[in-house]
Computed example of a mutant assay.
Amino acid sequence: MTASLATYFAFPGNTDEVLTHWQEVLGGELELVRYGDMQLEGMPFEPDPQSVAHATLTLPVGVIAGSDSMDDRDYPLRDTAYSMLYTTDTVDEARGFFNAFVEQGGSVGMPFERAPWGDWYGQVFDRYGVMWAFSCEAGE
Rank of each mutant, 00 (worst) to 15 (best):
L85C: 09
Y86N: 01
Y86L: 14
T88R: 06
T88A: 14
T88N: 08
D89E: 14
T90N: 07
T90I: 05
T90S: 14
V91E: 11
V91D: 07
D92K: 03
E93R: 03
E93I: 02
A94Q: 08
A94C: 09
A94K: 01
R95V: 07
R95F: 12
R95A: 15
G96H: 09
G96D: 12
F98N: 01
F98H: 00
N99Q: 14
A100R: 10
F101T: 02
F101A: 05
V102S: 00
V102I: 14
Q104G: 05
Q104D: 10
Q104L: 06
G106Q: 09
G106H: 05
G106P: 08
S107V: 14
V108I: 15
G109E: 15
G109S: 15
M110N: 01
P111A: 14
P111D: 13
F112A: 05
F112Q: 04
F112E: 01
E113C: 13
R114M: 14
R114H: 03
P116T: 08
W117K: 05
G118A: 12
G118D: 07
D119P: 10
D119T: 13
D119H: 12
D119Q: 13
D119W: 10
W120N: 09
W120V: 08
Y121K: 03
Y121T: 04
Y121Q: 03
G122Y: 01
Q123K: 13
Q123V: 11
V124Q: 03
V124W: 05
F125E: 03
F125A: 04
D126K: 02
Y128E: 05
Y128V: 04
G129F: 11
G129P: 10
V130E: 12
V130I: 15
W132L: 04
W132R: 00
A133T: 14
A133V: 07
F134Q: 01
S135Q: 08
